[in-house]
Nucleic acid binder design. Structure first.
Lengths: 238, 238
DNA sequence: ATATTAAACGTCATATTGACGATAAATGAA
DNA sequence: TTCATTTATCGTCAATATGACGTTTAATAT
């Protein structure tokens, strides 16, 4: 096999330089106040004490994805949540400490009494309004911006919003969520029509009276129906 | 700063294991025969001689993205082409040779007489029909499958098809391209209506007579108009 | 001249959208 | 117990978009 000269294309594993690999997690949550982002105080130098996404180095004997799941499980306490790889960030000098390539994952969690509380698992964690994210270390603000763009893209064509709501939710809640995600107002009547037409919501015989005298009907997401429609190449559109 | 015990979350750069990092490129092209994929004969062990995507290890002193661009430039001879990061593939044993995490990039190129020819830059390269991709090494078939899914997603809502056509193209050509991408037939009259309604095509006063007696009008893509519409949050939909 | 062929144009019934108006179900005040 | 208030829910309609399909045009070759 001829060795190719002056080629960008690799021709063996020899003399290749290994690089530190990390995962960083963008964690979105939603409550009555709006869309939130979970950020942390960095616990080691350089930049200790600064706001940061939560992350971890990837060990040589673990899958990259597992590393992300481990971080998410530890910081949210949740086993099952929506997680998707966002992007690998690989600029040479993105990390001042050493050459580190970071693979970012974004996730959506259903807020409840436990994971709403801060200082998760010994880490100083804070939920912040996604519109008021402070300066984060390294390229973490860039990661957040990209995650938000991706969230908006995904939520437009996939019924992903449900991942941010409790299992039972009302249509006004769902509307608020979409309005928070896109930072715009939707006509409630048209929104209701579109969302119900998908056939992905199951109407329950319960009402939530926490926000109005009249109370709003609770719905749950029909995951079975969604799976069925997805297989047929279904395309949800908001 | 307290060291967190038994935590997935990293607390310093010390004792972290570096990992080999690679880029692999999924290169799509299109001609009268259909949508093509550029594959290569692997030039080093293990698996030398097997079909593979083209790739390269990432040096410690280069951006990940630059590594991908370098490979693409070398194998296609093109400076400017559509490139987008696809996904980082990070399973522990995905590479038999060593622990290698690969960041895949997908790209679209305008085929011409030069880059259509095989054995690009000393590498044994072949264009293959995307429906008949042979068995590739490692997880490269998985990468191709994901790239195809992403291409279809992108082409649905972004006028990306033009990246695969020459600067001047006819509507029947464009239709053929979309039909190849989605492996389905579109009504030519409705397709024409939709595509022209976007206002992104500039009609030229030239005809291409290579495929019919009558000849088809040539168009070019209006990149300026696209930029303008994109900024206003425009959403192209096929 | 005329048959042939791909390209281009046109029509229409139906479905979807966006912009509203109107009603309903609860509460608490008069 | 009536009534005003508030949020939730249902309904309407004109404008637009869609899918399905028929027709004409511009060239070439016979």
């Amino acid at each position: 096999m001829p060795e190719v000269k002056n080629s960008a294309v690799s021709s063996s594993y020899k003399n290749k330089e290994a690089i530190l690999l990390a995962v960083d997690c963008i964690i979105f949550g939603f409550d009555h106040e709006g869309l939130k982002l979970l950020i942390f105080k960095r616990e080691f130098e350089p930049l200790a004490g600064h706001w940061s996404l939560i992350g971890s180095f990837v060990n040589k004997n673990e899958d990259v994805e597992d590393a992300a799941y481990k971080v998410l499980k530890e910081t949210t306490g949740l086993e099952s949540l929506f997680v998707e790889q966002l992007h690998a960030f690989g600029r040479i000098n993105r990390d001042k400490g050493d050459r580190v390539v970071s693979i970012a994952y974004w996730s959506l969690i259903k807020l409840n009494e436990e994971n709403r509380n801060l200082n998760v698992a010994n880490h100083e964690a804070h939920w912040v309004d996604f519109k008021e994210v402070p300066e984060l270390i390294l390229d973490h603000n860039e990661m957040v911006a990209m995650a938000l763009t991706t969230l908006r893209e995904r939520a437009r064509f996939r019924p992903i919003g449900f991942e941010l709501l409790p299992d039972k939710f009302t249509l006004p809640q769902l509307l608020n969520l979409y309005e928070a995600i896109y930072q715009t107002k939707f006509d409630d009547r048209n929104f209701r029509r579109k969302i119900l037409k998908t056939g992905l919501l199951i109407k329950l015989n319960e009402k939530d009276k926490s926000t109005s005298k009249r109370g709003a009907l609770l719905y749950k997401f029909d995951y079975q129906q969604y799976d069925k429609l997805s297989k047929d190449g279904y395309l949800f559109e908001l």
